[in-house]
Amino acid sequence: MSKYKVSIRYSTSLLEIAISKNLLEVISADVDFILNVFRSSSELVSVMKSPVIKGQLKISIIDEIFKDKTNFETLNFLRFVVKKRRENYLVNILEKYLDLRDEHLCIANVDVKTAYEFDEEQSKALQSNLEKKLNKQVRLNYSIDKTILGGFIARIGDTMYDASIKHQLKLLQKKFTEGGVTLN
């Protein structure tokens, strides 16, 4: 619970810095890069989470890895987080930052599950339809799930747009077996 509060507070401040200094794109690219580094190295994550390793040492590790590869503001933010001893929330903070940035730019992240890979035309149609519906820019992340049999399932935040054959069949089954009172 506190994890959520802490990370949202730090990520909001990073976003505010980025906006006020007009560095939104640069910092976002940095955050993507840093997250990738953390994801590729579990050792780095465990070093950050370790309570035994001193903060000063962690700062110098961060310096060494990211110094020439990221913007000064980003690096400064990382140092600040470590200095405030919130480094074990670092990944959460950065992930939250990306969410907040998308919200700020009115971009919706949509996870699309399809049974077979969509061709260019289909994905364009889906994108434009979703953009029209949501009134927002849409970024589609595709994944393939054969169990849905056909159609697609789009998930935006907590809302699902379910047009899969599997779901249709389930509804049909429900309709056949339904006898008067059901809960749905």
């Binding site: 998930r155 907590d158 809302t159 699902m160 747009y161 379910d162 249709q168 509804l171 049909l172 309709k175």
Partner: peptide, 26 residues
Amino acid sequence: FESEADIYDVGTVLQVGDGIARVYGL
């Protein structure tokens, strides 16, 4: 029988036990 896309809100079960479930999302 309708065959349009069905729209519904979802969450994910974080924890379940003793008749109680904690859900993320929704």
